[in-house]
Structures are given as structure tokens and as C-alpha cells.
């Protein structure tokens, strides 16, 4: 927990409450290590990896009794190889994620979700990787399950700054090709991009047998579009500016946005991906708890409402 204390985006209390739950994969995972997740193959891994301290609740069959005899302490014996769950966290860090509403920046909210999930997954013994979509391209940290790796991920998250524009669909296509083995892919973005290529990229992900979950992050302002005076809107991803009277354009803006959200949600349902629409004024712990519990129940998360 030393890493937690240093990170503003991690809340120890939240982690403690959520750690009672297990982040589960809905699809069978391919891995050499005996783990919490259903494997696509029979048998288990036998290659020793490292020791770790016993934690209450651990299966005592993996206790190394010889170490206990020598040191009078409980150590769990872990085996090196591929874990059963490889989780790829994909975070959109383009300019639009930098929108700052009354409840903070969207990217900061996304970072909280990503960091918390990474922490939970690592501590339940799964490998976690991070892919950040930036204007400069896709920045990847490959999946690992060590505490040191988690620190690496958290460092990367802490250093993130939103800006520029990027082709999200292209980035997802690339990622789908790079992650060869079945993995759980969680995408955190506002998905403000053309719907057709985006859906195409997500389908590509599913084609690669990845367990796909989408977190669409929206600010309350972006949804309601309620302003009481004419506004000059400055694009976060370019230098484009637009002066308009929201009273005049609000109705059409909402219609356009709703159509986009509806297409994304319907498409996700059609090709079996989880879809979470997250308004950033909501408690992120609740968002994560809902997601994890839905996974545990084995249902498809498809929250279209205020998730």
C-alpha cells in the first residue's frame, strides 16, 4: 500500500472495500498459472515465480511449509508463467478528455478508474497492462503482475496530460493486433469520434476473442448542454472556435449526441461488449462496484443510464 499513499487518484478506503470483490473475466482465459479465472486449457502451471506474504484468506495449499519451518513465517509460493487473466487497460488521453466541468476533469476521473482497477487486478494476481491513446500515438505498458509493475503503471498515469487529437479507431485496431492472447480489454474514453470506424475497431477487438468492456466518460455539461448565455466554444483538440447561442443550438446538439450514444450502446450490445456510460459527477467507487458485481453475476453490463 505504499504506492497508494503517494497517489492522489487512489483511495485506500475504496481499494479496501473493492478488494473484497474479484474482478472476473467473462471469457475463458489462456494462462499457465493457476488463478482465479477459468482457463481455456486443462492443468496448471508448475514453474515457481516468487514468494509473497500470506494474507488471510489465501489458500493454504500453496503455503511453503519449509520456509515456515525455517523462518517461522507464512509465505505463499507462487509460480511464474502466464497468468490466467491478462488485462489491458486502454485510456484515451486526447484533448477532449481534458474537458473540465464542475466535478473535475474527465481524464482525472478516468485515471481514478484505471488506477483502482489496476491495483485490484494486480492484487488479485492478474497481469495488467496500460495503453494510452495520445496525439503522439499509442503508448503501451505490457501486462505484468508484479507490484513493481503496478508502480510503473501508476507512475505513467500520474504523468498523463490530455491534449491533441488522435484517431481512436486506428489506435484500437493496432491494439487488437498487438494483444495476441485472449485478454480482458477495458477502454476508457469519451468516444468522441465518428461512430462507424469506431464500431469497426471495437468489432475487431471482439474478433480477437478479447473480453471487451467500454467506459464512455461524459461530463454533465456535455450531456445537458445547458448554458444561459451565448458561448464561445474552443475546441480542446484543435484551435477551432465557435460562437453560438446555446438556446438556439441546444436541441440539435442533444439530438446529435443522443444519436451517437445510442449507436455506440446498441453496437456494443450486438457484438457482446460491456458498455458503461459514466457521467463524471458520479462516485467512481460505485461505478466500479457496479461493473465488478455485474461481472461476478455473469451478466452483460450495458448501463445506458447514469452509470
Amino acid at each position: 500500500m505504499a504506492a497508494v499513499a503517494q497517489r492522489a487518484f487512489l483511495d485506500a478506503a475504496v481499494l479496501a472495500r473493492l478488494s473484497r470483490l474479484t474482478v472476473n473475466a467473462r471469457e475463458p482465459m489462456l494462462g499457465a498459472v493457476t488463478g482465479l479465472h477459468r482457463s481455456a486449457t486443462r492443468g496448471s502451471s508448475v514453474e515457481f515465480a516468487e514468494y509473497r506474504k500470506y494474507a488471510p484468506g489465501d489458500d493454504i495449499k500453496h503455503l511453503d511449509w519449509r520456509v515456515f519451518a525455517r523462518t517461522d513465517r507464512f509465505y505463499m509460493k507462487e509460480f511464474e508463467a502466464d497468468t490466467n487473466l491478462r488485462c489491458q487497460l486502454v485510456l484515451d488521453a486526447t484533448g477532449s478528455m481534458g474537458y473540465t466541468g464542475r466535478h473535475g476533469r474527465k481524464l482525472d476521473y478516468a485515471v481514478k478508474l484505471v488506477a483502482t482497477l489496476a491495483h485490484l487486478l494486480v492484487h488479485q494476481g492478474d497481469a495488467v497492462g496500460l495503453a494510452v491513446i495520445t496525439h503522439a500515438g499509442l503508448k503501451e505498458i505490457p501486462p505484468r503482475r508484479s507490484a513493481a509493475h503496478l508502480r510503473h503503471i501508476l507512475d505513467a498515469l500520474a504523468a498523463l496530460k490530455p491534449g491533441g487529437t488522435a484517431d481512436i479507431a486506428r489506435a484500437l485496431h493496432d491494439l487488437a493486433e498487438k494483444v495476441r492472447r485472449r485478454a480482458m480489454v477495458l477502454v476508457f474514453s469519451d468516444f468522441f469520434a465518428e461512430a462507424a470506424p469506431l464500431i469497426n475497431a471495437l468489432q475487431h477487438m471482439r474478433y480477437q476473442k478479447h473480453d471487451l468492456a467500454l467506459f464512455q466518460l461524459l461530463d454533465r455539461d456535455e450531456v445537458n448542454f445547458e448554458f444561459d448565455r451565448p458561448m464561445r466554444f474552443m475546441d480542446l483538440e484543435s484551435s477551432f472556435q465557435l460562437i453560438t447561442d446555446p438556446a438556439v443550438t441546444a436541441a440539435d446538439y442533444r439530438r446529435e449526441l443522443d444519436a451517437h450514444l445510442e449507436v455506440l450502446q446498441r453496437s456494443s450490445r450486438e457484438f457482446g461488449a460491456d458498455y458503461q456510460r459514466v457521467i463524471t459527477d458520479r462516485d467512481y467507487e460505485q461505478v466500479l462496484a457496479t461493473f465488478i458485481l455485474q461481472r461476478l453475476r455473469g451478466g452483460q453490463a450495458g448501463g445506458g443510464g447514469p452509470a
Binding site: S96, G98, Y99, T100, R229, L236, L242, E256
Partner: peptide
Amino acid sequence: FRSLAWGAMMFLIRA
């Protein structure tokens, strides 16, 4: 008018 850095510009332009 008030200036605002805005992300969902694609919908606004369409609107």
C-alpha cells in the same frame, strides 16, 4: 459571451 474549452465539438458543429 463566455469562453469555454469544449470537447464535444463534433456534435456542436453538426448542430
